[in-house]
Design a protein around this nucleic acid. Structure first.
Lengths: 354, 354
DNA sequence: AGCCTCTATAAAAACGGTTGACGATGCGCC
DNA sequence: GGCGCATCGTCAACCGTTTTTATAGAGGCT
């Protein structure tokens, strides 16, 4: 009758006839295990299995300073942009036998900071920050750099200190989108720019300007509107609808509209519908991101896809690399990766009919 | 010049002139702190603050068997149904100074089991299982009950062992939905039932039958279709579209359609559009859940709202209660709560015009 | 004077592992 | 015969807390 209590390494030691040290060495395949003969290993392993021994990760972490946990800080888990990234992260972590501590900052800075402390206290070995929205603060650098925790920011280019970053190539993505409209014959194109405070917003706009210049599309101020600052990612739906209505009211006609992101584009669809305009017959609409909503809307949304799951996976790759590098006293590389975005053509855009 | 090393309780002891024990007692306000005079406490606290002492949660957990962590097991984080629940969970945990270990089972049983072990190894104090989709297995009971970890299943009624459960009142919700259609004058109503394997599917259907009976709506087999089994929550979009097309082909006319959930309903919208039918003019459509997509679609979807965030919060409440109960050697209550759903009227339903 | 009960604090024993230093043995080699 | 080295293990320290037990003085009571 096995005591229902938890099996410790000492139980395994007793059962196998060796010391706890040896058991530990064998079970972890530590360097010293090199000298341990195969049958000893065998005996220890079977003893461990027989007892159903499971090492206590807390004790292990305490001693070895390795928690096998990485922190995942999300700025707003409600944002549909986040979930696929989390999926990618989680999947890679699973392979590597890590777990993730999830923290949702709700776009609030103090919450971010408090969570950051909690995560560092817990000795996370790495940190992923999914910075879709909030203006990331410098406090990051201060705390993180000095604590030596490998950190990757996803969804945002950044160049502070030792922080790695994975983001989509917003500029190229925007060019791709505009190019798509251009090839369909559109020349009079309206734009819903993102809010100024967002880095990605500026980059996408830059891509637009570049492409417009080279293709000799003229950007008419009357066809440009800008989303207001906001912390709520879902607010851009309303905003997109309102701004589109506003653009229509200005009277300058356009045959296509390029929105800052998918949610904004969905808002635009709504505005068109309300005015009795059909998409894509009367106006093509293109979004950005390819969040899950984009494929389900009516019409389904042509957009520029961020490979979010891949970005999540990549970011964990970077973190894990950094961790092993640090363990081997090698320099931890700082990686800045810009991932290409991919055009996804659906129903909301079409050849200019005229 | 402070050594950059981590400050431990011994440092605080040295700095304040007391022993580590006393520091611990004071800082945790342990029972023995009763005997410690105020000025001693004061000195210790200021010393701790001065050094910026942060207790190591690993060590603390190891010793006191309390991790301040709960596990959150999601069956599929990609499901839009999950995120608001997670938000609710996370928010309540934050208040209580807990962190969450996130595990995403990808709807795979072995993954679920492996994660379960990992979480238990980490000594999570409680466990939330968001069981939106997968057929929950009995293995749950075996492992969880014996390990004494308070567990709540969200999104599914269940009555195994000591597991608590929080779910929406599917039956009443379905009645509400049908009642809504009825009051709008609809009598010929088509139904897209959920897959049999899902518990919620049966419950909703039961609600429908009940209401239909009392309101003398007849349920015509020609107007009923059933979603296929599937593990992918997003597959119901395609399925919803296909089944709707199928229903239309059967030739039996209907003025309203009630879908198993919102995603299915969105699929239905698409099918109607493709057939040139307008929603709600030619047919009203109602969904279930009120996932974020529902409000953004064209037309926006009338649906029955599950208060997901509240459900998440509630489930954490239950877990935390159980934890404190266990700490005080009181019996841990098993709670089964059914939350009422709420009708949300949007554009996809309207008064039968005739 | 002896004995209890409070106070106020410290010492020591956990918690469950990992790890560096070391001991013992056996073998090859000069 | 002594030395060095490879092999196989163990000991004891350590990770940073919490918690139980101990110490010790001060009153209060009999």
């Amino acid at each position: 009758m096995p005591k229902s209590a938890v099996v410790t390494i000492r139980d395994v030691a007793r059962e196998s006839g060796y010391s706890a040290s040896t058991v530990s060495i064998v079970l972890n395949n530590a360097p010293l295990a090199r000298y341990i003969p195969a049958d000893t290993k065998q005996r220890i392993e079977t003893a461990a299995k027989r007892l159903g021994y499971r090492p206590n990760p807390l004790a292990r972490s305490l001693r070895s300073q390795r928690s096998n946990v990485v922190g995942v800080m999300v700025f707003d888990i409600t944002d549909p942009f986040c979930t696929p990234i989390i999926r990618g992260i989680e999947n890679s972590l699973y392979q590597a036998n890590y777990l993730s501590l999830l923290a949702d900052a709700h776009n609030e800075l103090h919450r971010f900071e408090r969570y950051l402390e909690m995560l560092l206290d817990r000795r996370v070995e790495g940190l992923i920050v999914i910075a879709n929205w909030l203006v990331t603060d410098i406090k990051l650098l201060a705390d993180l750099t000095q604590k030596q925790v490998p950190t990757v920011i996803v969804g945002r280019e950044i160049d502070i200190g030792t922080v790695s970053a994975v983001s989509v190539d917003n500029e190229a993505g925007a060019r791709t989108a505009l190019d798509h409209l251009y090839r369909l014959g559109h020349r009079d194109i309206a734009f819903l720019r993102g809010p100024k405070s967002l880095a990605s917003s500026g980059q996408r706009w830059k891509g637009i300007r570049r492409y417009a210049q080279s293709a000799r599309i003229k950007l008419d101020a009357k066809l440009i509107a800008e989303l207001p600052e906001s912390l709520d990612p879902n607010s851009s739906f309303e905003a997109g609808a309102n701004l589109t209505t506003e653009l229509l009211r200005r009277g300058k006609s356009f045959s296509a509209l390029m929105a800052y992101d998918d949610i904004t584009a969905l808002g635009a669809l709504r505005a068109f519908k309300k005015k009795g305009l059909r998409v894509p017959e009367d106006c093509s609409v293109i979004g950005f991101d390819d969040v899950s909503q984009a494929a389900l809307s009516l019409p389904s949304l042509t957009t520029v896809r961020q490979p979010m799951e891949a970005m999540g996976a990549l970011s964990i790759g970077i973190v894990l690399d950094a961790i092993t590098a640090a363990n081997q006293k090698r320099d931890v590389p700082v990686v800045r990766r810009k991932i290409p975005a991919e055009l996804v053509v659906r129903e909301s855009t079409r050849q200019l009919s005229k």
